[in-house]
């Protein structure tokens, strides 16, 4: 693990053997790396250097406090207020609001657009994230015109705050193997013992996630935590 994910510090020179080389694709730099012409690649943050030789890309994985929107991110936004053409919503607390056009919902026209109250949560995708500009989000895929699971979230529910790094680990396609987060699978599987859909379950899931994030639990620790939470719930 330690060898294929080396720790880098800002300004450090990266060992050339770590930089992937691919005959066809150009090298793609992700967050936390900066290209200084002609040929230097310098990390700008401290974190784990991750490389993908297939896609010929590399980036630094780190756990920051502030969410910086980037295009394509799926986010949970909270409506602040409505203006003539768009809703203003917050992606993270105490940052500049993002805009959500009234017509950026599935089959929305001027007459059928959804009416959202301030405080309502919407599940949205970031479409515009430029520096020094307010970000823009949408609840419909521009290509297909379908919601694809995005849209306003109705009914009582809870959003649990976790760190950004943890959220990214959860989003990994194989989060248990690559990210080391298996609480959700455990709760859904045998250890969970068939949780019913209730407020109690939501609380247990939220606590499991937050505790795993806070204490940085490994797989064994997560298994113990899930057992403890399920026992408490009964």
């Amino acid at each position: 693990m330690a060898t294929d994910r080396p720790l880098v510090l800002p300004g450090e020179t990266i060992d050339p053997s770590l930089i992937p080389s691919h005959p066809k694709h150009p090298l793609r730099l992700g967050p936390g790396l900066r290209h200084i012409p002609p040929s230097d690649i310098v990390p700008t943050v401290a974190g784990q250097l991750i490389t993908n030789p297939v896609k010929n890309s590399m980036w630094v994985e780190y756990n920051s406090q502030r969410y910086i929107p980037s295009v394509g991110d799926i986010v949970l936004a909270q409506i602040l207020r409505s203006t003539t053409d768009f809703y203003l919503c917050t992606l993270s607390q105490h940052t500049a609001p993002a805009t959500l056009p009234h017509l950026a919902f599935e089959s929305a026209t001027k007459k059928t657009r959804p009416n959202l109250a301030p405080g309502q949560l919407v599940y949205a995708r970031v479409t515009l994230a430029n520096k020094h500009m307010d970000p823009e989000v949408e609840c419909v895929s521009a290509a297909t015109g379908k919601a694809e699971g995005l849209g306003p979230i109705t009914g009582p529910g809870c959003a649990f705050d976790v760190s950004l790094g943890f959220a990214r680990r959860l989003l990994m396609a194989r989060s248990a193997e690559d990210g080391g987060v298996g609480v959700l699978e455990m709760l859904g599987g045998e250890e969970g013992g068939g949780l019913a859909e209730s407020a109690r379950t939501v609380v247990v899931v939220g606590r499991a996630l937050q505790e795993t994030d806070r204490a940085g639990l490994g797989m064994e620790g997560q298994r113990r935590l899930v057992k403890k939470l399920v026992r408490e719930m009964r």
Binding site: T90, G119, L121, T154, P156, G157, A159, V202
Partner: peptide, 23 residues
Amino acid sequence: AEPSLNEKQFVTQALQENLRLDG
């Protein structure tokens, strides 16, 4: 910063079921 409407509803509903968010 204010919690969202959904969260407010959830907290109130959970309390009716004798449940707090942190257990």
